[in-house]
Design a protein around this nucleic acid. Structure first.
Length: 572
RNA sequence: GCGGCUGUAGCUCAGCGGAUUAGAGCAUCGGUCUACGGAACCGAGGGUCGGGGGUUCGAAUCCCUCCAGCCGCACCA
């Protein structure tokens, strides 16, 4: 089906093209009429004619009479008010479409989505929250759009710290170390190793020797290393389950996976004449980057000790994603502090012609999670906050709220619901703010059932489902018309037909918060409608017509939340 | 110093290629109601959109500049 927005835009575009190609109409929702078309003035300027006259001509060509009532306003805006017959047609088509008007990509893109990226043998903390939640929402949105998503969890599983970690593992004994890691005491493990490394010279020497053994592929060392990696991945998976994030161990392709490609990166950059030796390190100097002194800034591909840094593995990964995985889009959901590093990696990849212009490659930047003091979110002791603890705390709050409300649920169902609410609270709070902004982590606000929160949206959905439970029979959209007689009904209907653009714009801009804003708007329109318009007690056809609105609203909220990674429980 | 991001109501945030009185949530105040789930609805007050210039008939939005905050600026990722 063609969405309401597309129908209007296509007709206007046709009229614009008939007058002159190269000018586009811009359509947006408006409170003057349902939609307002912009772009007539720009077109008139090109044609050097009076805007209102051009507007008249566009209307004559566009033939919008069957879909909307049009008023030419001001210096040439077109205010479009949808005809009820057209709106009803659109709604009925949506009701029969399981995708609710969101079209599936005709030419699916392969999207390589790099997100989460915790470090082996280190705790997942708030710093990983945004990458994980935003990345997962983008993965789900892309999958729903029909794209082929390859998730890449680029875990930190290689490098110098692993010498000390393996030695510490040996000191503890393999079984005990594995046990400590499996219960999620990763921070404790890492810190103990660190303390010994700093205090004990013998330990330090062993650690260094161990790094060498690891990198030269010593079998026993690799076996020990695998214990660390596997235990950590198992633990990460638990965290992902707790957050309802779709990443699996199959998506883990850590730094170590690229180790064998690093020599090739150096070799090929050298062959291209891009490599420069500087202070003992092998570097590429991409144009446009400067250091503190205003001198060219290098991307260090190989360090002066002949080791490789993350620049090399990032280059290898990028190359792999283009040439082996054939990605059409490479997205890196990585925090702002790494912006310059990634820009340099991208720049070098372009210099080396590893990154064709046809491949969209960008960092999905996000801001920090702040504490109540508006500084980086830390625990009272100044330590980072474990991600699991954050979720657990939210679950506890949800429990208390459920009890206060006198829930009938108990046992597992109650716990499951508390989890769903807690996840919704945390994820929605994160996703609903514009990515690049920092936001203040305030559990009380996030989990409140009033206002612009995940639980509020879940509640609106649960109320809708409750209507159909009371109805007592299975409701089918069938050929039912939609109730559009009152203002509240019409407003809700206009919200419902807008899902396709909200989704498309959210995905195209990689801004999940646009979809959040849309869903909240729909939920508000629904509650206003629900207050003003009795549904089950309505007479005759009106009852079915209102049920049709309710059904579509419930499905819109459910679908919208689902593609963000948020559950919509049947009851709360 | 250079680069990036940010600055909108008391607080938390929207405002998507410029368009009519700048929106929402929370909080405050006032209404609605035997309530299809009140975890609701309706309304009010509250903003010189960080300051100043510029482009424009028209700027929160585009350009310049200044101020403030955060982040990054060669071998840890």
């Amino acid at each position: 089906m063609t969405s309401t927005y597309e129908t209007l835009r296509n007709r206007l575009q046709g009229a614009f093209d008939a007058l002159e190609t190269g000018a586009d109409p811009v359509l947006r929702t408006s409170d003057r009429g349902d939609y307002q078309a912009n772009g007539v003035m720009a077109l008139a300027k090109r044609l050097q004619r009076a805007p209102r006259e051009v507007a008249q001509e566009i209307l004559a060509v566009a033939q919008l009479d069957d879909v909307a009532d049009v008023e030419i306003a001001g210096p040439g805006f077109l205010n479009l008010t949808l005809r009820s017959t057209f709106l009803d047609e659109q709604l009925r088509a949506l009701a029969l479409d399981s995708r609710l008007g969101v079209v599936k990509a005709t030419r699916p893109k392969r999207v390589i989505l790099d997100y989460s990226a915790p470090n082996v043998a280190k705790e997942m903390h708030v710093g990983h929250l945004r990458s994980t939640v935003i990345g997962d929402a983008l993965a789900r949105m892309n999958r729903f759009a029909g794209n082929d998503v390859i998730a890449r969890n680029h875990v930190g599983d290689w490098g110098t710290p692993f010498g000390m970690l393996i030695e510490h593992l040996l000191d503890l004994g393999e079984d005990q170390a594995a046990a400590a890691l499996s219960i999620g005491d990763l921070d404790g493990f890492y810190k103990e190793a660190r303390v010994k490394f700093d205090a004990d010279d013998a330990f330090k020497d062993r650690s260094r020797a161990r790094v060498v053994a690891l990198q030269s592929g010593d079998e026993e060392t690799l076996r020990l290393w695998h214990i660390l990696v596997n235990q950590s991945i198992a633990y990460f998976s638990e965290v992902y389950t707790k957050l309802d994030v779709t990443l699996t161990p199959n998506d883990v392709v850590g730094e170590s996976a690229y180790d064998s490609m690093l020599e090739g990166v150096v070799h090929d950059l050298d062959a291209l004449g891009l490599l420069v030796e500087s202070e003992g390190a092998l570097c590429v100097f991409p144009p446009g980057f400067q250091n503190r002194e205003g001198e060219p800034l290098p991307l260090i591909v190989r360090k002066s000790d002949d080791g490789f840094g993350y620049a090399a593995s990032d280059l290898a990964a990028l190359r792999d994603r283009v040439s082996t995985l054939h990605g059409d889009e490479l997205l890196y959901v990585v925090g702002a502090p790494q912006a310059q590093h990634l820009e340099m990696v991208f720049a070098v990849a372009r210099l080396a012609h590893w990154l064709p212009d046809t491949v969209r490659c960008e960092q999905v930047v996000f801001g920090n999670v702040l504490g109540p003091d508006h500084k980086m979110f830390k625990s009272r002791g100044g330590e980072t906050v474990k991600l699991v603890r954050l979720v657990d705390e939210a679950i506890e709050r949800a429990f208390v709220i459920l009890d206060d409300r006198g829930t009938e649920l108990d046992g597992d169902p109650k716990f499951h619901l508390a989890e769903q609410i807690a996840r919704a609270a945390i994820k929605y709070a994160d996703l609903s703010t514009e990515r690049q902004h920092d936001y203040v982590f305030d559990l009380d606000r996030m989990i409140a059932f009033e206002g612009d929160t995940g639980p509020y949206l879940q509640y609106a959905h649960a109320r809708l489902r409750s209507i159909f439970r009371r109805l007592g029979e299975v409701w089918q959209p069938g050929d039912t018309h939609f109730a559009l007689g009152s203002k509240a009904e019409r407003e809700l209907a206009l919200g419902l037909v807008a899902l396709p653009e909200a989704f498309a714009s959210s995905l195209a801009s990689l801004q999940p918060h646009r979809l959040c804003t849309y869903l909240f708007d729909v939920a508000q329109r629904f509650t206003s409608f629900y207050d003003a318009c009795p549904v089950l007690s309505a007479e005759g056809a009106l009852r079915d017509e209102r049920l049709a609105l309710c059904d579509l609203t419930a499905r819109t909220l459910q679908l919208g939340l689902a593609v963000l990674g948020i559950d919509a429980p049947e009851r709360m």
